[in-house]
Structure formats: C-alpha cells, structure tokens
Design a binder for these strands. Structure first.
Lengths: 253, 253
DNA sequence: GTATTGACTTTGGGATCCCAAAGTGGGTGA
DNA sequence: TCACCCACTTTGGGATCCCAAAGTCAATAC
C-alpha cells in the first residue's frame, strides 16, 4: 500500500494528463487539500514529486503552474527511452551474465506469438501481451549489466506510453477487418523484431542488437505518428487509452 | 536562494558521496534534524528528493538506508549520459534550428583552444575551460530539438562527473613534465573531437555526429579507468576532486 | 486621471504536535 | 532455560499552527 502522497501524486498526474485542468492553470496547495480531503503535508510532497517529473513548475511567484505534456513531449520521451534501450541491447549482447535472462526473453516471445495466433485482441489478451512485452524489455534492462539504464528509464516512466514494456494498440482495430489484419500484422512485425534482438544478443552481436532495438523503438513512434495523421489532433488522453499499460497507470483510490 | 530543503539535500548528498556515513548506515529523520538544526519538514522533503535520486532507500522497515554510489555506478551513469548526448548530436545534425546554437559551439571550441595554448592548468583556467565545455555540451542538448534529452540528463546530474559539461582533470598533472604533456594532449584530443562534432552537425552528417560524440563520451570513461588502474582503489570522493565541476556541487551553506 | 504607497489577503515554507505501526526488551510461564 | 507475549520506545506519516514574503486592491496625492 502506497502512502497518501504517492496516491495523491498519481491522482493529480492522472488528472493533468487527462486534461482535467485548463492550460496554464495555477493550482494552490490549499485547493488541492480541499478537493482531495487531505492535509497540506502530503500535498506538498506530491507536488514536489510532480515538480521533479516536470508536470508542474514551481517558482515564478506564488503557486504551481501546470505543464501538461503534449504529444510531442511523449514522442520525444519515447525516443529517449528507445535510445537507452538500444544501448542496453548492445551492452547485453556482450555481457557474460546475459545467460540468466535469455530464457525469460524467449518465454516472452513465445507468449506473444501464442497470443497473436489466438487471433483475439480483447482487453485481457492485450493485457497478457503487454505483460509479456514488459518481461522482454525489462529483461534487457536488467541483464545489460548497466543498472543505470533501467534506473534512468524508471525516472521518466511516469508519462503515458513510457512505462516499461508499454505497447501501442490501435483503438480502431475493431472498426473493420482490414484494420484488424493491420493490427495483427503490426504485432507480428514487433515480435519478429523481438526475435532478431534475442538472437543478436544470444549470439553476441552488438551492432545487430543495437540496430534492431533502435528500429523496434522507432516503430512505436511511427505508429503514434500514423494515428496522429489519421485521427487529426490526437490528445495525450487518447494516447493513454491506446496503451495497454494504461490500467497500471490508474490510481486505485 | 534555494529553500532549506534543497540546501539540506545538497549537504546530505555531499556527505554521502564523500563517505561521511559508514556503509549501510541507517539514518533517521530525528538525527538529521538534530545535526542540521532544522525541523522535520525540510528533512523529509530532502530525504524524498535523495530517495528519488537513488542515494537513499526507504521502506524495508523503519529508517532510510544509505546507498553510496560506487565508481562503477558513476561510470555506468557517464555511459548513459554519453549515449544520450550522442542521440542529441545526431538529432541536432538534422534539426533546422541548429543554426542558432552553432556560434556558441564554435565559441566554446575557440575558448578551450585558447586556454590550452596558454599552457597553464591552474584552478581558474580549468574552471574557465569547464565553463566553455559546459557551453558546448548544453548547446547540443538545447539545440537538438528533443527537450527530453536535456531533461533526462538533468535527472541524473546530481552524481559527481555528471553535471552538464563535467571534465576529468588528472590530479597528478603537476607531478612530472610527462604527466603535464599527457594532460595537455588529452585536452587537445578532446577539443579536436569537439571540432569534428561541430563540423558534422554543421554539415548535417548524423552518422558522423553521433559516432564522434559516442567516442567523445567514451574518452571520459577511458580516463577514469586509467586513473583507477594507476591509483589503485579510486574512491568516489577522489573522482569528485578530479572534476572541475566539483565546485558547483559544493553546497554553499 | 494616474501613479504610488500602504494595508490587507493569499500562499507557501518551516515547526510542532499527534498518532499509528514497527521494533525492542523484559517478564512470566512452560 | 527457552520461548512467547505484553508493554514501552522509536520512528515515520499526517495534521495543524505560525510566519514571512508576495500579491492585490484601494485610497490618497500629484
């Protein structure tokens, strides 16, 4: 059970990301105390946390200023995380201790493959797939030998789409058989990339491991751009609903 | 003027990095209140901050546990920052707005070159050099078009050697003319790398920009390894004294 | 009519108080 | 003598209080 301030931070973060506050809203500690029925102490701790996450800004006179993340912010952060993961893949391909993580990666690939072949893309399936994807990606962060990569990724994992192993699902996947096929095809592509990364790491090929991971990360950016083009002005809130990791992002109050 | 909690965090961080606490020391809020003559509120804020920086750990029963960063931690973090900077260099080489930052970079290279040619390597000179180096590196982070790279770098900049534009100087540089020459040569190499990075970015060559920046970052790791081999068991505290950026890390209480 | 100044209000930082949970030690019973 | 249980202490989370600084508004003087 998290303490009140962590829950509060999650709640406020959720509200901000989902656009509950107008742009450039100035929120005060007192207001938050009232609306969330808590004292000022946890509110201050939560605000400090959010300040460090870059979601609110302090200073500039009194009050905290909200800095809602934009789609651009998210894509930039995804690029950063992807680049860090490509470093992890490279390092892991030359790390002796990678043996201990290879089986997890293989298991994750297997699981995802099985789920794709089921042909169902309902919520529980997507959730299982996301779990397997998370296992794959965290295995690389854990097994690369540089603990700081995982640590740094965690530092920016509060944004939507940036939790470990987040996947993008097309919300419009059930609209037509064509979309459905496209969705399945994208998942197959993604898992084929996983397979290549796995092989490169297993065989100790740093160039291939880094390159393929770079491409794999780039794929997510491409998808987001596709959705943005297709759906017009995509909001960050829309993007969250695309991500299977969204559930874990929800504060359970 | 920073608030008390920020000063306090800097002070405690400084103490931890310089080994003022025994390994696995369990520090309590009350003790810190007493030793630093402040109330518990700023202490709690400071500890939360340090917790997020990974320097102390919470939970696991009562009390906070100190996690002193090791030389390995620092080198891993340097690797992460270097990799992020190589992304920045690549992106900047293709960013239209890079024009606005090129002059700063050229100026920094010029300044460093002039300082090297002076042949003096005293504290003020090294400080000037560090400033110019910082200008060079922050220009890339600012001009690459992805604000999140700079943001992420800032998140890990509390460790020694990880502030923007930190340089490694050989403490033993005055021991012999040979060391002196070596030190100057290393600085020349570093600035030559700056020059290549600058050209690659100006000419819009992403591969060369990224590759050279990668090498440039790797150079610092190599130096640290050299010092470690030569001086036996190097402590983090030693490493701090190597860095010209150490001054800015000192809390001014 | 406008600008400046002074009083009042708002707001965040720091200190103190209270409480619940976890750790600790001693006493008692088997 | 050893184990278990209960009381006490320690410690961190949350609430409340106080204060100083900044913002605001109005009144007065030019």
């Amino acid at each position: 059970m998290d303490s009140i301030d962590a829950q509060l931070a999650a709640q406020i973060r959720h509200d901000i990301i989902h656009g509950a506050y107008p742009a450039d809203e100035r929120l005060s500690e007192a207001k938050l105390c009232e609306t969330h029925k808590v004292s000022r102490t946890p509110v201050r701790l939560a605000l400090r946390l959010l300040e460090r996450e870059g979601i609110v800004q302090r200073g500039e006179g009194r009050g905290y200023r909200i800095v809602s993340p934009t789609i651009t912010d998210i894509m930039q952060a995804v690029q950063v995380r992807g680049h860090l993961e490509s470093l992890a893949a490279r390092l892991m391909s030359q790390a002796p201790e990678r043996e201990n993580y290879l089986s997890h990666m293989a298991e994750a690939i297997e699981t995802i493959d099985g789920l794709i072949n089921l042909g169902r893309l309902d919520a529980p399936t997507m959730h299982q797939m996301q779990s397997a994807n998370e296992l794959f990606h965290t295995s690389i962060l854990d097994g690369c030998g540089n603990d700081y990569i995982g640590f740094t990724c965690k530092q920016i994992s509060h944004l939507p789409m940036l939790a470990a192993g987040s996947m993008v699902f097309d919300r419009a996947i059930t609209n037509s058989p064509k979309r459905w096929e496209e969705g399945l095809f994208r998942l197959r592509i993604g898992n084929a990339q996983h397979q290549v990364i796995y092989e490169a790491i297993e065989l100790g090929d740093p160039v291939r491991a880094e390159g393929m991971m770079r491409e794999h990360s780039h794929t997510m950016i491409t998808y987001i751009e596709t959705f943005e083009k297709r759906d017009g002005n995509l909001t960050v809130s829309d993007l969250v609903s695309f991500s299977a990791a969204a559930q874990t992002d929800m504060p359970k109050l």
